[in-house]
């Protein structure tokens, strides 16, 4: 799954918006000068002058239509331009406030709706999302929660105190009170996790504990694959299985 592009498009002032300048001077201007010169064109050989005049007026009529249409087209192009450049990931970002201080762009109550490249919808909310303007690919998230649906229609939520999302590598480094809940009744906790969003893997070499329908478990490391469908606990595991009551 790929996180959406967070950057607004500062520099995308669409080209060509400045060219919708005044209608070309050209022909129309010339005709006006002659009539101001005191109407002498009628005396000079009526038929020829008449022919020139009709050609002129046809041109003027044409321009009366063409120029407004051209103006409308240009305005539409200026408005539509950002949408045309939108990346493939459909992405909507909303946030409550935006401040920029010294070198970072901070959004409070950031909320991302997105669809990753496997077409899986996800929502990520964070109390704050800070993108440093010096390292544009890094976004620091505080108190983040992600609701993710996997290909098989299962979902899981993932939350942690802090998260560093790197857009260039599509990695999310989580730390502090990590909690993962899945709809199949699994719950896992840990202190650190490295999530590879593209590959759908989770890695941790710290204490991990949790429970599933089979019982409780605790280990010193974890490798999650296929979006959490397969999870390997490593470096020594202690599990308590509950066979449960015999019906």
């Amino acid at each position: 799954m790929t996180y959406p592009e967070l950057r607004a498009d500062p520099g995308s002032e669409p080209a060509g918006s400045g060219q919708a300048g005044p209608a070309p001077a050209g022909e129309g201007g010339g005709l006006l000068r002659r009539s101001r010169a005191g109407g002498d064109w009628a005396a000079r050989g009526g038929a020829a002058a008449l022919q020139v005049a009709t050609r002129r007026s046809r041109f003027v009529n044409l321009m009366k239509v063409a120029l407004p249409v051209l103006a409308v087209l240009l305005t539409v192009a200026v408005l539509a331009w950002p949408q045309l450049r939108r990346t493939t990931d459909e992405f909507r970002l909303s946030f409550s406030s935006l401040e920029t201080d010294s070198g970072a762009l901070t959004m409070a109550k950031a909320r991302y709706h997105g669809i990753d490249d496997k077409g899986q919808p996800y929502v990520v909310t964070a109390d704050s999302a800070t993108q440093s303007l010096t390292d544009r690919d890094r976004i620091d998230l505080v108190n983040l929660t992600a609701d993710i649906t996997t290909k098989k229609g299962e979902w899981f939520t993932l939350s942690s105190d802090k998260g560093i999302y790197r857009e260039d590598t599509q990695r999310l480094f989580l730390s502090g009170n990590i909690a993962i809940f899945t709809d199949l009744g699994y719950e896992f906790h840990g202190e650190t996790a490295d999530v590879d969003l593209d590959a759908g893997t989770v890695t941790s070499d710290d204490m991990v504990w949790g429970q599933g329908p089979f019982g409780l478990m605790q280990a010193h490391g974890l490798r999650g694959y296929d979006g959490g469908d397969r999870i390997r606990f490593i470096n020594g595991v202690h599990t308590t299985l509950y066979p449960g009551s015999r019906s």
Binding site: G215, I231, I234, G236, V237, T240, L241
Partner: peptide
Amino acid sequence: SSQPIEVISDELEVQQ
């Protein structure tokens, strides 16, 4: 056999 079973192992793989 309904009592809890404590298991110690190097690894555990859960296939949800």
